[in-house]
Amino acid sequence: MDPARRLGPAQIGVLTQLVVATVLLGGIYALISVGLTLIFGIMRVVNFAHGEFLMLGMYLAFWAFVAFTADPYFVVVVAIPLFFVVGLVVYGLVMRGVIHASHNVQIFTTVGLSTVLQNVALVAWSGDFRYVRPWHLSTVLRAGSTIFNLTQVVASLIAVALTLTLVAFMKWTHAGRVMRATAQDRDAATLMGIDTDRVYRLTFAIGIAAVGAAGVLVAPLYSVYPTAGLQFVLLSYVVVVLGGLGDMLGAMIGSLIVAAVEVAGSYLFGAAWKEIFYFILFILVLGFRPAGLFGQRGAGTLGV
């Protein structure tokens, strides 16, 4: 048997490290998927340009670092309001016109937006791979023989904080209740006097702010280039579907599942297999639990 796969005491250290890798990678996926989950959950729009907003966040981190050697942890504070405004503008210019249109029209629109953003980035900043190297990059924390990358730890903690904040926001604030009401039944919400257009605008802006912040936070871990978003966008759809199409906590668990499948698949069978495994999972979930592993409220509007 392949020595790498033989079980024994030496494997316990490896197993712990694999679990840590899963949790940290899951944290990054959760961070990236939060905005997509929110937008999908409330607006029922699949934002195919999600990855490109992530890419813009990464470029923000890069340029802030080049121009002012600004630490991404500082830039993220600026990124949230900045991307909130970007979200408002993009909603006004692009999404508002198609929000009541069919899903096909929405898909074409967001795919178009994605292509436009990629090519704007290419024209403006060239196709070079860029890197953000703050001093704390590659700082590792050790617990026994287990190693934690600090940047990944921070990204995961922020993902948890962001998810909990949004869950609390949705649950206990008036705006959150209005958003949920709109998600559950758009027409009824309108009849109750809710300005759904305003709800969508707010949702979109929050979603974009979340993904912009995610871009800034993951920029040190990955290279920054115009199609960087594509690296994550497919798997964030998987995460959203596993999590229940709009359920925040579900998406968090979905992220961990995707990461676990990826890490275990890469270790046991090779990195080429990881996508096969998580897309098999994706298809199984769509087939047997189309409302996601954990079900969801207002699934009726999706026709599932």
């Binding site: 694999l18 990826e262 270790y267």
Partner: peptide
Amino acid sequence: LEYYNWQTLNDMTPTILKMKQL
């Protein structure tokens, strides 16, 4: 011997842990 798709690779830790043992 291991091949992977660079465009979707987000973590090399599992591969490295395997290599360490080899």
